[in-house]
Amino acid sequence: MIEQIREKAKELLTSGEVKVVIGYENGGLPETTRPVFVTSPDEVERLVWNKYCYANLATFLVRKEVSSLGKPAIVAKGCDVKAIVVLIQESQIEREDVVILGVTCEGVGDPLLSKCPICDVNTPREYDYLFGEEIPPKTDINKFADIEEFEKKSPQERFEFWEKQLSKCVKCYACRQVCPMCYCEVCIADKNQPQWLETSSHTRGNFHWNLIRAWHLAGRCIDCLECERACPVDIPLSLLNRKLAKSVKERFDYEPGYDKEAPPPFTDFKPQDPQEFIK
């Protein structure tokens, strides 16, 4: 499979159709890979594909350090493609401005990351070229089993859980930086005239930041779980993101990243949207 990817990368770079291929190369530590930006056909041998290709490379599509290289092709798993789709939906990139090298994926990590067993995009839903055997989407999965379990706790228990988890936050903002959906040129956390958010990483300041981050991703988070992978203090951020994803699914029957033509729920109004909260 990697040979086909390298061959296609070489072809695209040689013809000049793309200026850079965003993919993975082997990392410096065992069981790691690193994003690589291949700009010359002679360098396609650097590209690899294996179960340690964790990073959602879509985040680089909206970073100027990479977009300045020219039109990209990008190696993307099904979950990564969902991020590309949201970037298209939100007018951050045009579909024709990126060549998607979709890879079918049985899951990454050893053991598998928690997002993988409940993945229904093992075959990406959007691509220009597909590599690997097609894998039919799983149908018998409950994406929100852990959220349903968590909702059974009392408000007090939930608060204590989050108080403990969020007290660990050091405000390194890796959750924001790694996220392909966090592309604001100036994040509200960085605005200081006035200072909207406390920059202190005490528990109150940490609640402030983490809840703002989660809210801004409601209906937008595609559950690539990169925030949770990056977090240096193991905060289970996916629980926050997916609680909101579940609400959006229940209320608007919408999941981001599946249909590039669908209007995002917070930019759209349908007469049948639930409105029982208006009293």
Binding site: R34, P35, V66, V170, K171, C172, A174, V178, P232
Partner: peptide, 12 residues
């Protein structure tokens, strides 16, 4: 180029 500008390296 692959650096995403998080503060992990400095905070750890």
């Amino acid at each position: 180029r692959m650096c995403i500008g998080c503060g992990i390296c400095t905070y750890v």
